[in-house]
Design a protein around this nucleic acid. Structure first.
Length: 482
RNA sequence: GCUCUCGUGGUGUAGUCCGGCCCAUCAUCUCGGCCUUUCGAGCCGAAUACCCGGGUUCAAAUCCCGGCGAGAGCACCA
């Protein structure tokens, strides 16, 4: 073989182009006039786990100029927290996500009735008041319940009478031979006589999740359904409804599940713990609710950025607080003011012939923010952190940060120069101060003092030097991350 | 058990569809060094990955087959 013959087999070397391109999520099919939805049940406020669906839907809405609908799925009268309707909307506002439309399912019950009448007429659904166990067992054996095969006008009149009294369920017919038992005939509506927070006792026949979702997705013109792959089977069920009503299906995209370690996200459990006083409320800083995380100082942008970065592959992923915190720090570090926090303060008395002035910038890289200044004279009380004091030995050279060098003698600190000495311990310290409790997300509380400069900073996120970032709130500071 | 998904460093991610610009991208974490009046930030460097086994091919993270592993669903909840 001549070198010419080999030529086609030799890979063409392209120059490695510098990849400066922002990584972005994959494109979606048919992105024109996209309509997306975020559809939580109003059982409590939003938590970290909800933010993925929200962030992804919002991302594509913005990318393609689509529309985002917030749909509150309150068709189970027994699992509703009346306050959640507002709590969820305030959580969206906090995230700076604007729903173009808010839809509440319990306002649309007549619609679900209308559509099920059509499905029944087409022979796609039946009514039965079979015993639940018996009905399920028949399905497992791929057998039809006798009620399944009755004429559709019988089914229809059974349905109409269920609206006012009697027991029974309305079932969507699927394929009883389906190898996946989860997909054989599923319940579309059931009787619940309990009062509903918004509708009271106006209705007794309530739609179930899969049925209501399909009807709404169609009627709201949803074009893309973006959700976790725990919904894979639900999608298949919902497609049956689209089929009976001859509707065009939206695009379904399922992303992998996230496990969030060391975090309790069960709304019902949290509510219980709040009730019995274990947590102070939905905004307890130990919780991963948005309100709890906001209280510690996380930025809304961090949530959006984190999930956009996690992609939408079907692999299951683990949430990493470390990565999440790093992103948040990246956002806040350059604009967060610095403060000295001293835990377990030990009192010293200053000795100096001159008046000294603390000259500490609010931010080391941003002189334009100004500085904290304070006069220190002989006799001024200086407080140092116990753990620092404990580590002193005879020849420890100490520098009070942004003040001066001192020598330590018992409880006396004596001025010993201005110019920084290489190798000396640089310590954060307080003179005029305010007591403060630093509250960690694991519940641990460290009491200490902070320099008396925080009156204007209530509600702000600051950095306690050498400790980490925290958000100030009254006499407390909630630890954010390092 | 049945059904369905998915396996790239510790973590997340790019590349997989259309095999060669991949001795594999980016971020974070870890470890060094520089810088710094914070153990923060910044700068420089190091270390660590294509689940396993076969096959196809000049060439496989990428295609095929078989294992193994992980996760989810199986409600008159959402």
């Amino acid at each position: 073989m001549s070198p010419e013959d080999l030529q086609p087999y030799i890979p063409v070397k392209k120059p490695k182009t510098e990849k400066v391109v922002e990584r972005e999520l994959p494109p979606l099919n048919n992105p024109d006039s996209m309509v997306l939805r975020f559809a939580p049940g109003p059982s409590g406020p939003l938590h970290l786990g909800h933010t993925r669906a929200l962030a992804l839907n919002n991302y594509y809405k913005e990318r393609y100029g689509g529309k985002l609908i917030l749909r509150l799925e309150d068709t189970n009268p027994n699992a509703i927290d009346p306050e959640a309707y507002d709590l969820i909307q305030s959580d969206l506002e906090w995230l700076n996500i604007e729903a173009d439309e808010v839809v509440i399912q319990s306002d649309r019950i007549e619609l679900y009735y209308d559509e099920i009448r059509k499905i029944i007429s087409k022979g796609g659904a039946y009514v039965t008041n079979s015993d639940a166990e018996e009905w399920r067992e028949l399905k497992n054996q791929k057998k039809a319940h006798p009620d399944r095969d009755r004429e559709s006008d019988v089914q229809l009149s059974e349905f109409e009478s269920l609206l006012s009294d009697g027991e029974g369920i309305v079932v969507i017919k699927t394929d009883l031979e389906d190898p996946n038992p989860a997909l054989r005939d599923f319940v579309a509506l059931r009787v619940v006589e309990d009062s509903h927070p918004r509708q009271s006792t106006k209705y007794r026949l309530w739609p179930l999740y899969n049925y209501a979702v399909a009807v709404d997705d169609y009627h709201l013109g949803i074009t893309h359904v973006l959700r976790g792959k725990d919904h894979l089977n639900n999608t298949l069920k919902q497609k049956w409804i689209y089929k009976y009503l001859e509707w065009d299906e939206p695009e379904y995209i399922h992303y992998g599940l996230v496990s969030i370690p060391n975090t309790n996200l069960k709304t019902s459990k949290i509510r219980e713990s709040i009730k019995n006083g274990e947590f102070s409320g939905w905004d307890d800083c130990r919780l991963a609710t948005l309100k709890g995380l906001a209280r510690r100082g996380y930025r809304p942008e961090t949530f959006l950025k984190y999930w956009e970065n996690s992609g939408l592959k079907e692999v299951d992923i683990k949430f990493s607080w470390q990565n999440f915190d790093a992103m948040n720090k990246d956002l806040i570090d350059s604009e967060t003011r610095r403060l000295f926090f001293v835990s377990e303060p030990v009192e010293f008395t200053m000795e100096t012939s001159d008046t000294l002035v603390k000259d500490a910038p609010w931010h080391p890289d941003k002189p334009e923010l100004g500085k904290r200044e304070e006069e220190i004279v002989t006799g001024s009380k200086i407080y140092l952190q116990k753990s620092d004091v404990d580590s002193f030995n005879q020849d420890t050279a100490v520098r009070l940060k942004n003040l001066c060098n001192v020598s330590v003698d018992g409880n006396k600190l004596s001025f010993s120069g201005m110019s920084p000495q290489k190798g000396s311990k640089i310590l954060q310290w307080c003179s005029k101060h305010t007591p403060i409790e630093l509250v960690y997300p694991d519940g641990k509380i460290v009491s200490g003092i902070v320099e008396d400069n925080i009156s204007e900073l209530d509600g702000e996120t600051v950095q306690f030097e050498r400790v980490g970032f925290a958000r100030l709130e009254g006499k407390k500071a909630f630890f954010l991350h390092r």
